[in-house]
Structure formats: C-alpha cells, structure tokens
C-alpha cells in the first residue's frame, strides 16, 4: 500500500523501463507491446476525463478513436498514392508528418465531439450511455460502406509516418513519442483537475444543484470536459493507426468503446494513472493468456469478475492508501 502519487510515478517508470530493457535485450516485440499499452492508455485517459471527472459514461468513445485513426489513414493514404484530397471547395495534398496528422485528428475529433456532445448531453444516465453507443454504431456502419477508403477492408499505410528528428520505424523511438505524449497529457489532466474548471467539474458531477446555485451551468462544464476528452482519445487513435500502420472500421466498433471503458474501470475511475494500469493489465492478460489456451476469453472474463467483486475502485484504488484526487 502506498500513496497514489508514488504509485503513479512507479507505474510510469515501469512503463518506461520495460521497453528500454527490451531495446537493450533486442526484444522489439516487447517494445511494441509497451507502445500499445501507452496508446491504449492514452485513449482511456481521454475517456477518464469524461467518465472520472465529468461523470459522463460514454459508450461511444470509439468514435473519436476511429476519427483520429482515419485522420491518419486518409492523409497518409493520399500522401502514399500521390493523390490530392478533394474537400469539395478546395483540394489539399496528403501528408506523412505526424504533427500535422495529430492536429487534424484533434481538430476533427473536437468537431465531432461538439456535435455529439451537444445532442447527447440533452440526456443523462443510462440514456446518455445508449445515445453515445448509437453514435458509435452510426460511424461504424458509415465507415464499413465508405468504399473510397477501403470500407471494411480498411486502409494499409506501408510506412509509419514521420516525426521531425526521429526515425519512427525504430520501435523504441516510436515508443518514446507515444510515451512523451502520454506523459504530457497526464500532466495536462493533473493540471486541469486542480484548476478552477476542474474543481467546478468535480462539483458538477457530485452535486449539480449546488453548482447551479453558484451560477455555473453543470451541463456546460460537462460539455467542455466531453470535448477535451474526445480530442485526447482522437489523438490516441492517430497514434494507434500509426502503430499498426493500418486503420479499419473496427476502430469504431462498440466492442472497442467497451474495451476502453474496461481499461478505465479496471485501473480505477477518476484515478490519474488508472487508465495506464488498466491498459497495461489488459494487454498483459491478453498476451499471457492468449499463449496458454484457445479458450483464454473464459479466464479473462473470470479475472475481470474477480476484480469487480473484490477490487472496488479498480487496481489503483486497491493499492493506493489515500483516496486520491477523485476516489
């Protein structure tokens, strides 16, 4: 048992040390796994802002993950085929530059979040869960029949996109990029939750009427949190697409929305590093159990059940002595 602050530091250091060790030991696949953890964690950090801070149970966050992925896929596809992207009023060239792709991913996710958030926040509780799920399904079926970009087959990008000054094809360097992004976003989240906005949001989640009494609009606070949350998950989508060098409609699937939510709950809702722990444990289980038996889903399910029954507040909640910032 230890303070959550030390636990967070320990988690991030572990996530950093494992791939460095793997790099020295020439085990590139371990680096790939760690990169996967970092990116999935980033997606879940995004959801955690809506879920943990804002109290918005979104079962449609795959929408933003997919949008980020397709931002990468579409831009890199046009760059790869040397064709221009026709936007109706004007055309632009594709790009293989990660920073530009990230900007587009964040921007398009934000636009989608404004629309989905504005409509979904009219509802609450289970209805909110379900309307976000419905938006996810709409995007999923749209992507499947969007034949320009491969439909269900998705889009393959042969080479990973470029980042100035680094060779992204080398696993450890791409990991460094993902880890840096994750760390920055975690710092951002810590800052946000301590800011006036974060405190008001926290209050809006726990006692909306009191927040209203001091003249704030809880729905508006949640709306902002939803957009912030979506952009982070969108950014993770772009990185995930780059990790796999591939995008497909499965990034929009409801199962994926469910998986990101499992990461958050597994790690600990509202805990800063909860999503990182959740994603790491999930990827590890998938990797270890998948090697043991054909029917590994049964064991995964049983382990998740045990965690729900005995580790309320997720793994971080179980390990940390203090209640944490939003326990």
């Amino acid at each position: 048992m230890m303070s959550e602050r030390y636990l967070n530091a320990g988690v991030l250091i572990a996530l950093l040390i494992v791939p460095i060790w793997a790099h020295l030991a020439d085990a590139p696949y371990t680096i790939t796994l760690a990169t996967r953890v970092a990116i999935l964690a980033l997606a879940a950090v995004g959801l955690n802002i809506a879920l943990g801070l804002g109290g918005l149970v979104s079962l449609g966050h795959a929408v933003f993950f997919g949008i980020g992925g397709y931002a990468m896929g579409v831009l890199a596809h046009h760059a790869q085929t040397y064709t221009a992207l026709d936007l109706g009023i004007f055309t632009v060239d594709g790009t293989k530059s990660m920073p530009i792709i990230w900007l587009v991913a964040v921007g398009t996710s934000a636009v989608a979040a404004v629309i989905i958030g504005a409509l979904s926040l009219r509802t609450s509780g289970v209805y909110f869960i379900m309307i976000t799920l419905a938006f996810g399904q709409m995007f999923y079926y749209f992507a499947i029949s969007w034949s320009t970009y491969g439909g269900e087959d998705g889009l393959s990008i042969y080479l990973r996109n470029d980042f100035p000054g680094l060779n992204t094809l080398i696993p450890i360097q791409f990991f460094a990029i993902c880890f840096a992004v994750l760390s920055l976003v975690l710092l951002l989240q810590a800052g946000v939750s301590r800011s006036a906005f974060g405190l008001a949001l926290n209050a809006a989640r726990q006692a909306p009427t009191r927040v209203e009494a001091v003249g704030l609009n809880p729905k508006r606070l949640q709306f902002v949190a939803f957009i912030l949350s979506a952009t982070i998950t969108g950014l993770a989508g772009a990185l995930f697409a780059d990790l796999n060098r591939f995008v497909s409609p499965s990034m929009f699937s409801w199962q994926f929305s469910g998986e990101i939510m499992v990461f958050v709950i597994l790690g600990g809702v509202g805990r800063l590093c909860g999503p990182v722990v959740g994603a790491a444990v999930f990827v590890l289980l998938e990797h270890v159990l998948g090697g043991l038996t054909e029917f590994w889903h049964i064991y995964l399910g049983l382990i998740l059940l045990i965690i729900v029954q005995f580790a309320r507040g997720g793994i971080v909640g179980l390990l940390a002595t203090d209640r944490g910032q939003h326990g």
Partner: peptide, 12 residues
C-alpha cells in the same frame, strides 16, 4: 460502471 464491467466479463 461496475455492472458494465462485470456483465461484459460474463459475455466472455
């Protein structure tokens, strides 16, 4: 949230 996680596990 716990219900979602537990029943998701049951599906598996």
């Amino acid at each position: 949230l716990d219900q979602v996680l537990a029943t998701f596990a049951l599906i598996l």
